[in-house]
Design a protein around this nucleic acid. Structure first.
Length: 469
DNA sequence: CCGGAACATCTGATAGATCA
DNA sequence: TGATCTATCAGATGTTCCGG
């Protein structure tokens, strides 16, 4: 959603506040616009110039980089005054939302899709509770306390002969393990906070090392789990359990657990071609598709192709979209449909979502079947648009470099500032000490002068008495 | 379908249960 | 009774499951 300010359109989704220059002559009314819409509904459809599009992208970049810099207040904000000055509700699909939810509810939120790791199912699905972990056997109303072993807990696992395989560590955990050594003197929660912060600031490229390791871990786990489930020990345990359930409830319990799905999970449906990531469920993948990370990857990796396709489209149908509502919501259904389409046609979601698919609803008069347009041969090259896209990309990278160098400069200045402040503190302390010393010595001087004076009194008295005698 | 709860990973200290 | 074992706690991230 967005609104029209004096000079700018301000929109909040999907990247937060985003300012667009107000096109001249546009009716100043409430306008619903997201960046995705701006991009997907076409420059022509929005009546936006190429410069406008560049502005949008530049702002997107700035905002993206701003979020990477810790002290965002110093880099300026797109949030209008009075808006969310204290604790704004983070957007869905961002890591901040996770922190917000945790803070608010004191509980753990769902994963942030944008930060999804390449997790594959089977991670924590062993029937742990039933098999032996005693964690869940604790009374639910038991108040939390530090340490100790609550009464009523079982001490030994039911399956002592064979333990289920250890669940695989995620990329984040692997990162924690490696970096934790560097902070041995800090308490555990402090280190976790620190490293959690670092992890969320890490680029995808930097995370990749750990994610790959996590993937190996996961494969190991899946193999071990499979072996575990096929073991005699486990089978006999299942039999015992089934019999027990039969005796207690009169019905046979299904021994199906999540590990049964292991064989089926290597499924293309769970793979995101754009981000090269696997997901453990369609649900997780869907969450990822709506997330910022996915969209940003889309934009950066496909904008060139998108530009050429779009300009081809616009060149063919120059009037398309003019005067249309720009509030076209980029619905989840459309995203999902676009992704499906991408799967079947070889196009990625990004390609479809950012160009053709989003225009499908705008079939120009007299052109039946919008989708057939994209196969239209002999489209015009529209070189000016391509140039603009190239310029946009250049601006993109220049801004990023600039922001990076400014960030590092800021860091240096801060360090220097801290050093100066510390030196100033020392000097002030020294000044205080010297002042105190001066005062002491002044007092001493006065005392000495008095003593000297009193010493002079005796000889003078003696001399005067001798003279008189 | 969505949101929330539960639980997994990591380390190390600690308290309480259990066993010889 | 002492030694040993194990849950719990801290915080962050990620996954899975379940109920509305």
């Amino acid at each position: 959603m967005g609104f029209l300010s004096n000079q700018h359109w301000v929109c909040t989704q999907p990247f937060g506040w985003l300012e667009l220059p107000t096109p001249s002559g546009r009716n100043p009314m409430l306008v619903c616009l997201s960046l995705k819409d701006a991009l997907t509904s076409g420059v022509g459809g929005l009546n936006l110039s190429v410069e406008d599009l560049q502005n949008v992208a530049a702002q997107l970049l700035t905002q993206q980089s701003t979020e990477k810099i810790p002290s965002s207040e110093e880099t300026g904000s797109h949030v209008p005054s009075g808006q969310a000055a204290d604790t704004p509700v983070p957007r869905k699909g961002t890591e901040d939302l996770g922190k917000y939810c945790r803070k608010k509810s004191g509980n753990r939120p769902r994963s942030a899709p944008g930060d999804s790791q390449t997790e594959v199912p089977g991670g924590t699905v062993v029937p742990f509770q039933e098999l032996g972990s005693t964690k869940n056997s604790a009374p639910s109303n038991q108040s939390k306390r530090r340490g100790g072993w609550p009464k009523g807990r079982k001490r030994k696992p039911e399956l002592v002969d064979m333990r289920p395989p250890k669940a695989p560590a995620t990329g984040y955990v692997l990162y924690l393990n490696e970096k934790r050594k560097n902070y041995k003197d800090l308490p555990f929660p402090e280190v976790t906070k620190l490293l959690g912060n670092e992890w969320s600031k890490l680029s995808l490229e930097d995370k990749r090392v750990y994610l790959v390791q996590a993937e190996v871990e996961k494969k190991r786990y899946r193999e071990e789990l499979k072996a575990y489930r096929q073991s005699d020990v486990y089978q006999s345990y299942l039999d015992r359990k089934r019999n027990k359930h039969l005796q207690e409830n009169g019905t046979e319990e299904s021994d199906m657990d999540a590990t049964d799905e292991i064989e089926d999970e290597d499924n293309e449906e769970l793979y995101c071609r754009i981000c090269d990531q696997w997901f453990s469920s369609l649900h997780n993948k869907k969450e990822h598709l709506y997330g910022r990370q996915h969209l940003l990857v889309n934009i950066t990796t496909n904008i060139t192709r998108t530009g050429s396709l779009r300009c081809r489209h616009l060149a063919m149908y120059p009037c398309q979209g003019r005067g249309q509502s720009i509030s076209g919501e980029f619905t989840k259904e459309r995203l999902a449909a676009a992704e499906q389409e991408g799967g079947s046609s070889g196009y990625s979601l990004s390609t479809t979502s950012l160009d053709e698919s989003s225009l499908d609803g705008f079939t120009p008069p007299g052109v039946p079947g919008g989708k057939t347009r994209r196969q239209e041969p002999g489209a015009c090259p529209a070189p000016d648009m391509t140039d603009s896209i190239c310029r946009l990309m250049t601006t993109y990278s220049e801004r990023e470099r600039e922001i990076r160098s400014l960030s590092s400069r800021l860091e240096q200045v801060r360090t220097k500032n801290a050093e100066l402040m510390s030196a100033l503190g020392e000097l002030l302390a020294r000044e205080g000490r010297l002042n105190a010393q001066l005062e002491t010595e002044t007092q001493l001087e006065v005392t000495l002068e008095q003593q000297l004076l009193s010493l002079w009194v005796l000889p003078t008295a003696c001399l005067s008495s001798a003279n008189t005698s």
